[in-house]
């Protein structure tokens, strides 16, 4: 059986750390960083990248459009 694997790239500099993507992620891929970005926000990042299924839910709800999503079958 083919398995879906996804991956996200977060534009860390523009993330405002609102956490809306984190709660929208069905697999628990995303966490908020302990470090802050240049604006002082704890930015989102794929803490568990292996869980990502590339559903794009995070990108869909991101108000700042900072998430790019990739998906492939393996």
């Amino acid at each position: 059986m083919a398995k879906i694997r996804g991956s996200i790239i977060v534009n860390v500099d523009k993330c405002k750390g609102c956490e809306v993507c984190m709660v929208s992620c069905p697999t628990g891929t995303i966490s908020m960083a302990k470090e802050v970005n240049g604006k002082g926000y704890n930015y989102a990042f794929p803490a568990n990248p292996e869980l990502c299924i590339g559903c794009a839910n995070c990108a869909m709800v991101c108000p700042d459009g900072v998430i790019t999503v990739y998906k492939t079958k393996i």
Binding site: S7, I9, G54, A56, G65, T68, V69, K71, T72
Partner: peptide, 15 residues
């Protein structure tokens, strides 16, 4: 991850 992040696998990008 490098094998996933390829142009042909792009599903969502800011317009």
């Amino acid at each position: 991850i490098k094998e996933i992040i390829k142009p042909e696998n792009l599903v969502y990008k800011k317009t």
